[in-house]
Design a protein around this nucleic acid. Structure first.
Length: 471
DNA sequence: TTTTGAGTTGTTCGA
DNA sequence: GTCGAACAACTCAAA
């Protein structure tokens, strides 16, 4: 073992288990573990408010796992890392790869600078099952459709899917103080009542991520395929924020699912991991995914930004209870059930005709699992402008979706309590309820709960007409 | 090169 | 009330 110090640069991999960069660094000798809040790039895609909150707790948890030796910096990684190397005579730097375009650019820059200082940089795959550049069509171009991508990836990786790697056994950490700042200096968790409310819904950090995975396997995987459509059931895994911050790796999750079951539930869940991979794949091969329509004809789509409508949507005041329940779940918990995400997104884009980017921005700020790849790809899918997109005629009806997937109304009543006493028949369309029913439930439309923002049939027709215009 | 079949998660209308 | 077809046309992937 060498006596020379190495840097392990933590990023979206806030864990000790299955962390190839950490394992390799530890195998070489003493390690200086660092985290850099890289928000000095002036880049639009810094962590949103909910993500920052999660990051705060996740970093604290990682720091505990590292016996308080995690060093924190703020600024440009491409300046901080070479500087640390000079100051501490470090000759090797280890990290796990990220795939956001601005991070890839930053990585290239760091490698160049380190090379000039004769310092070795080692990067590893810590957050994907399949490297985006390894899954290609026969002609060498990237897939644009999920199903062939997923089939190909799985056959290609047959038996070769790497097993998760253990946490380093003999991790020797650098104890002296190399400067840096404190968690409090980062200011990721302002003392707002909103923060306190959101963090009350989660157990954050690597240990809790592993626990959440085991709980899911134990009790919810057996009914995943059917149950995942019903937001009141709490049948989904809720692993997304743990995966986003790398408290869990997809290899760990894939392996544990495979060990637990090989039935349709397991397959359905694995395909969700496949979608996560596909989103990263698209972001890698189409780096403008977060800003530009993948189908350019959508550049001509007559979006119409009504600021009042947008705010009503954001605050869960559209007058469509199922939509409002979802938007309020998001605000109160930093999360939204997957099916409801599709419905509120469809409503914003296809009923309010507001550009998907406004929706993506709001999700980015409010979701604890906000992920540039998944968020961008999913919004493009819903809007119909992605390469592999929802068909144009698929416009969710928030009334019938509510009746179908929240039949007892438990989810909707919970998040829209002012309608809790309405009978299920009218819960999803209170404007159709007779006066005496509304009276009895204590609902006064336009006072205690809004009238619907738009007419579903009319706005649907308008969306279809607009889509015809651009095709 | 040409052809063929397919593409996450829906809704509505009319028989 | 149930059920099947229509809803644009296109682009992608693979044979």
């Amino acid at each position: 073992m060498s006596n020379k110090l190495s840097i392990c640069w933590f990023r979206q991999d806030l864990r000790l288990n299955d962390n190839p960069a950490l394992l390799e660094a530890a195998g070489r000798g003493p390690v200086l573990p660092i985290y850099i809040l890289d928000d000095a790039n002036g880049d639009k895609w810094q962590c949103g408010a909910a993500g920052q909150l999660w990051l705060h707790h996740s970093l604290k948890s990682l720091n505990r796992s590292l016996d308080g030796n995690l060093r924190i910096y703020r600024g440009r990684a491409e300046e901080i890392i070479p500087r640390l190397c000079r100051e501490f005579q470090i000759d090797q730097v280890f990290w796990n790869r990220c795939y956001e375009p601005w991070r890839l650019k930053c990585d290239r820059e760091i490698k160049n600078r380190l090379e000039l200082q004769s310092i070795q940089a080692h990067s590893y795959n810590g957050s994907l099952l399949w490297e985006p550049w390894q899954i290609l069509k026969k002609d060498g171009s990237p897939y644009k459709i999920f199903t062939p991508f997923y089939k190909r990836a799985r056959t290609q990786a047959q038996g070769k899917l790497e097993d998760p790697r253990p946490a380093p056994l003999n991790l020797s950490l650098y104890h002296a103080d190399p400067g840096g700042i404190t968690m409090e200096d980062l200011g990721l968790r302002p003392d707002h009542s909103w923060c306190r409310k959101v963090e009350g819904h989660w157990r954050i950090g690597e240990d809790n991520g592993l626990l959440a995975l085991e709980k899911f396997l134990e009790s919810r995987l057996t009914n995943y395929q059917h149950g995942r459509d019903f937001p009141a059931l709490n049948a989904t895994s809720r692993l997304s924020p743990h995966l986003h911050f790398g408290e869990l790796s997809p290899r760990q999750v894939w392996q544990r699912i495979s060990e637990a079951s090989d039935d349709d539930n397991a397959e359905t869940f694995k395909s969700e991991l496949g979608w996560r991979e596909f989103s990263y794949y698209l972001l890698y091969h189409f780096p403008h995914l977060p800003e530009k329509n993948l189908k350019p004809r959508f550049d001509q789509f007559p979006w119409w930004l009504n600021q009042r409508w947008l705010e009503s949507w954001q605050h869960g005041m559209t007058g469509y209870p199922f939509v409002d329940a979802g938007m309020r779940e998001l605000w109160q918990t930093g999360f939204m059930h997957n099916r409801v995400r599709m419905i509120v997104a469809s409503f914003l884009v296809k009923n309010l005709l507001i550009h998907w980017r406004h929706g993506a921005d709001w999700f980015w700020d409010c979701l604890v699992d906000a992920d540039l790849a998944s968020n961008s790809a999913s919004w493009q899918w819903v809007a119909g402008c992605g390469t592999d997109a929802s068909p144009f005629f698929r416009i969710f009806n928030p009334v019938s979706q509510g009746q179908k997937f929240d039949p007892q109304g438990a989810y909707t009543r919970h998040f829209v309590p002012e309608l809790a006493k309405l009978p299920s028949k009218y819960l999803f369309s209170p404007w159709q309820a007779p006066h005496e029913v509304l009276d009895q439930a204590g609902v006064r439309l336009g006072v205690t709960y809004p009238y619907p923002l738009v007419d579903l049939q009319q706005s649907r027709k308008k969306a279809l007409d607009s889509l015809k215009q651009i095709s």
